[in-house]
Design a protein around this nucleic acid. Sequence first.
DNA 1: CAAGTATTCAATGTATTTATTGAATACTTG
DNA 2: CAAGTATTCAATAAATACATTGAATACTTG
Lengths: 221, 221
Amino acid sequence: MEGREFKDAMYDGLAKLLKALSNPFRLEIIEMLSQGEKSVEAIVQITNLNFANASQHLQVLKNNNIVKSRKEKQYVYYSLVNDEFLALYQHVVKYAVTEIAELEKIMNRQRTDNQSGNAVSLVELESMIKNNNVLLMDVRPSVEFEFGHITGALSLPMNELMAKLKTLPADKEIIAYCRGPFCVLADEAVRILTEQGYNVRRLDEGYPEWKMKQLEMNHSN
Amino acid sequence: MEGREFKDAMYDGLAKLLKALSNPFRLEIIEMLSQGEKSVEAIVQITNLNFANASQHLQVLKNNNIVKSRKEKQYVYYSLVNDEFLALYQHVVKYAVTEIAELEKIMNRQRTDNQSGNAVSLVELESMIKNNNVLLMDVRPSVEFEFGHITGALSLPMNELMAKLKTLPADKEIIAYCRGPFCVLADEAVRILTEQGYNVRRLDEGYPEWKMKQLEMNHSN
DNA sequence: CAAGTATTCAATGTATTTATTGAATACTTG
DNA sequence: CAAGTATTCAATAAATACATTGAATACTTG
């Protein structure tokens, strides 16, 4: 193979991968799957796509080795192909929200509207947990919590939040987290709990970011 | 802003960035610019695009904050917008060549054809340099070497290689490197020098990967 | 095995991306 | 300031991506 042919093949392949990623619905699907595997039905519900369209997008992701599927009974479950891909996706998101002015602005506005402006980073969280006086609260649906969560977190899904308000200690600072930087559940929790007089902030990142960070640390040891 | 609106805005923004990256010519331009700034003319020559088309692609990259331009005399010079982007691009490439079977295969075939199969990684290089008996050789054009190169490397551009063969020590192992994993100059050098009886291997990565690694190390200190 | 449900396939029209062409602009140099 | 050069702009045609629709498939359960 000549040098030119080789390069063309590599750039074509790269472009194919990036093309598969360059659609907002497919990105939303990827984001969903970063919380664990989901049925097509669940994907349809959350994305507001119809079945045929969602299926089409899923095929694109599958043909580009971004997701894999397994069949159980009459349902098909999709999940991300591996953690390397998740790390890449997170890098893209991180770049976008820190380096693209437009997205940074939207993100900040969202956080201000929800009174969750001063978010805590994963690094800060670590030292806060060491100093102990903090309650880490996972506000995702319990299925997602069960699939995996930050060590030491308490599961308190949004729909149970109001009912279980009294069980929360008034003296501890509360850190709420959910799926990641785009997830608004934690914002919502911060808004509600602030109104109720709690000292609460959100975590900048979510469970998948924490998970990848753990993997990285294990790898470098 | 409602949660749905917010998410849509974020995914649209992300998709826009990825769309700008999802074209083989634009990727080739990015790869070129990772060696330093280039004039439109240089970009046209290497990519085989015509001026109007190259300019169009450059506008796309510029509108998405991937490249920036500066004008000097009648020439316009383009360069990558910052190192964060370069790091992201390198992550994409690394993912693609290690996780996408198709690209991995093409890469391996290329290396086998050029007798440069057992490439050295940056990590290996480091320890080899400590143990000293190795000559690190940069085979890129001298302009690129002058813009930046791996510490301790000798500049020996491909077009001078044959002429300066005798100046190379026969007792040292030679490591040739160029622009990165897609660059075939180092393969070419390995082929030629092996024929001449030298003990030579190529570096898996290139100058930009080394540069980013240095930055990372400085950052974590 | 019939009926129901989950998912995918295939076909079509529309929107978007890309290459090509020719002209316009901007800058330099004599 | 005229002529030449580098780059961009604008318009168009061709290729590709996407949403929508209706049907087909595959599987489960009674």
